[in-house]
Design a protein around this nucleic acid. Structure first.
Lengths: 129, 129
DNA sequence: CATAGGGGTTCTAGTCACTGGAAGGTCAAG
DNA sequence: CTTGACCTTCCAGTGACTAGAACCCCTATG
């Protein structure tokens, strides 16, 4: 199976798949013409990677998760720990974004938004001189 | 005033200030020895930029916001529109992160996290084959 | 006067996970 | 035989810094 077909099945762009190979996440075989030859298990891995990336795991997390996935003697605790660390980071990002959102949405409701220059948004951005 | 002192007052690292000059957000004068010479209004601008960046505005947004800030004949509507667009993007990011959070936190609570291989997290990552 | 330290300068390269584009090889259909 | 859709590699760009190297400047002290 060529790269485009593999991408279609795993729902990933060909460019992304080439990148995943470059960073060593997958190792598809090669046809005699140099084309990548994807086996079903390669496509399966790609699907795994796509899902893990969609959940926000980094490439390095994906590398570890994939190796755990393929390790029949893994401990689920190892997987859980990675997921929990990731959850912590997600929570931090959400908190930071919410803080921005709170501040900004307040300022936006305060701003007339007309053709006059007075603007509480700019007033808030200005440092206390 | 040298760069470090300016950074202290605006609460920004010197490296960041040099970067802001490189992309044209500020234009400090130069001493005869080549050192950047920051005037109070430069520090004021840096404070503005620091605050705007802390609210998540992009550098390009900052550029426009700064020019509006310095334009006494601005229309507050222009400022408000930028802020509202940014708010929309923040909301999208929060929604995406929350979706990840929901999925992952559910999976994490389902995972025993012991030394056995069974793991609902990995099971969820695996594509339906 | 030499030197030590704490400033400053520029430049390059690295971060993260792709993404776009150029230049060129391969293959199946008409 | 040509067209067009594939495929390949390699290089550059994204955003907003950040680390580090190599070098210059200034002041204070022994």
């Amino acid at each position: 199976m060529n790269i485009k077909e593999a991408g279609k099945r795993a729902n990933l762009p060909a460019k992304t798949i080439r990148y995943y190979e470059e960073v060593g996440l997958i190792r598809p075989l090669r046809d005699t013409n140099g084309y990548r030859a994807f086996r079903p298990q390669d496509v399966h891995k790609l699907g795994f990677l796509g899902r893990a990336r969609a959940l926000g795991f980094t490439i390095e997390d994906c590398r570890v998760l994939l190796s755990l996935y393929e390790d029949q003697s893994r401990a689920s605790a190892d997987v859980k720990e990675i997921a929990q660390r990731h959850l912590t980071q997600i929570a931090e990002k959400i908190a930071a974004l919410k803080a921005m959102q709170d501040t900004l949405s307040h300022l936006v409701t305060c701003c007339h938004g007309d053709d006059r220059p007075d603007c509480p948004i700019l007033a808030d951005l200005a440092p206390p001189s």
